[in-house]
């Protein structure tokens, strides 16, 4: 597992540090650093909680997403 933190985007709020049960992140000089990437199980709750969207995971298994409504997506595609 490879975790990349965009240092320019990270606001140092520490939410990912608090949220991760496996202590993957640590704050160093007010920036989040993935110090134990091998402990990451890929839940991606850090992505959901990060206000700056500064995180990137590579080599992750993406779970199926049945809850996405295809019709809504089609409408969104027309707008976006």
């Amino acid at each position: 597992m490879e975790i990349h933190v965009d240092k320019d985007a990270c606001v140092g709020c520490g939410l990912c540090v608090k949220d991760c049960p496996m202590h993957v992140y640590e704050l160093q000089d007010n920036v989040s650093v993935a110090v134990r990437p091998n402990n990451c199980m890929g839940c991606l709750s850090c992505h959901e909680i990060c206000p700056a969207q500064a995180l990137e995971h590579r080599g992750i298994y993406a779970a199926r997403r049945h809850y996405i409504d295809i019709k809504v997506c089609e409408m969104l595609r027309k707008v976006v």
Binding site: P21, M41, G42, C43, L44, S45, A63
Partner: peptide, 10 residues
């Protein structure tokens, strides 16, 4: 439950 996330749960 140890942890829940949008992509996986421990």
């Amino acid at each position: 439950i140890v942890h829940t996330g949008p992509n996986a749960c421990l």
